[in-house]
């Protein structure tokens, strides 16, 4: 069973959101990394890009799959995790410990539309 962590927000596209002040760190969940398999490439997006909730920001590739990573929230990309471009496998090792990009939130109320840990756990069970 994949790991889920309390205190984060979750999207139906299997992204997690960790809010620190006005900034949201965004990564993919353990369930998502497991489904993708060994990651070989990560493009975490562009700093300064304006994004709306649901926009594709990052791209992850494994040997047999490719996936866009969407921002579950709107705002401006403030940072990207540059370490991942040389070592995408870090996401496989610890999906929650490696964010992909950070967004300066423009509308905090969007967070209410996301799931909490237990709702996400139920969601994953249904997906399987």
């Amino acid at each position: 069973m994949s790991k889920v962590i309390d205190g984060l927000y979750y999207s139906k596209e299997h992204e997690w959101v960790k809010v620190e002040g006005n900034e949201a760190l965004i990564g993919i969940t353990d369930y998502a990394q497991d489904a993708l398999g060994d990651l070989v490439y990560a493009d975490c997006g562009t700093v300064g890009a304006a994004v709306s909730a649901g926009d594709a920001v990052a791209v992850l590739e494994s040997v047999k799959a490719a996936s866009d990573v969407y921002s579950p929230v709107s705002g401006t990309v403030t940072r990207i995790n540059e370490e991942l471009s040389d070592a995408p496998e870090k996401i496989n090792a610890d999906a929650f410990g490696n964010f992909l990009f950070a967004v300066e939130l423009s509308d905090k109320s969007e967070l209410d539309t996301l799931m909490d840990a237990s709702a996400y756990e139920d969601f994953c069970k249904e997906e399987h």
Partner: peptide, 8 residues
């Protein structure tokens, strides 16, 4: 191969 049509 992640660039290719059979995956994307």
């Amino acid at each position: 191969q992640a660039r290719e049509q059979h995956i994307r």
